[in-house]
Amino acid sequence: MRVSVSRSGGVTGIPRRAAVEFTMRGERTADDDAWAALYRAARSQSGEFADRGGPGLVRDAFQWTVRLGRQRVDVPDGTLTGPLRELAERVLAQGA
């Protein structure tokens, strides 16, 4: 599974992008298991953000785009919470 994140905006306006790939089925490492569990939690939460009708831009705030496989979720920083935020931040911190 591939998860990619981009975060743009903020005071400096410098975008950051990263992605991770992990195995959901078959032979997996402990790290794959951790990513898969976080992915599942974030995926179940992502519908909350899809129902909001698109992002609301706030001056100098970050805007997040999270791709969970084929699903794309655009979320303003102030409303990104829970497992989806945890996944997005972890991808930016540990992804390539």
Rank of each mutant, 00 (worst) to 15 (best):
T65I: 08
A36L: 07
A50W: 04
W64E: 03
D33T: 10
R59L: 14
R85N: 01
W35N: 01
T65S: 09
V75G: 01
V66F: 03
T29S: 15
D77N: 12
G47T: 10
R85Q: 09
A30S: 11
F62T: 00
V58P: 00
F62V: 00
T79Q: 11
G69C: 07
R70P: 12
Q63G: 10
L57A: 11
D31Y: 01
A36V: 01
G54Q: 02
A37H: 07
V58N: 00
R43N: 13
R72Y: 02
Y39N: 08
A34L: 11
R67K: 12
A42W: 02
E86C: 04
R85G: 00
G53C: 11
R52D: 10
A41I: 03
F49N: 03
A61Y: 09
Y39A: 04
A50M: 13
E86G: 14
Q71F: 06
G47P: 07
R72I: 13
A41W: 05
L84N: 02
T79C: 05
A41S: 14
V75S: 01
V58I: 15
Q63V: 08
R43A: 13
D60H: 12
W64S: 01
L68C: 11
T29R: 06
R43L: 15
S46C: 12
W64M: 06
Q45P: 10
A34E: 14
D33G: 14
A37K: 14
G54C: 05
R72M: 11
V58D: 03
Q45H: 06
P55S: 15
T65L: 11
F49L: 14
P83Q: 04
L84T: 02
T81A: 11
A34W: 05
A61S: 13
E48A: 12
D74I: 09
R67I: 08
Q63F: 05
G54K: 07
A50N: 05
G69V: 04
D60P: 00
D31S: 14
S46H: 07
F49T: 04
A34H: 07
V73N: 02
V75R: 00
L87C: 07
Q63M: 11
L84V: 05
W35R: 02
P55C: 09
A88Y: 00
Q71P: 00
L38V: 09
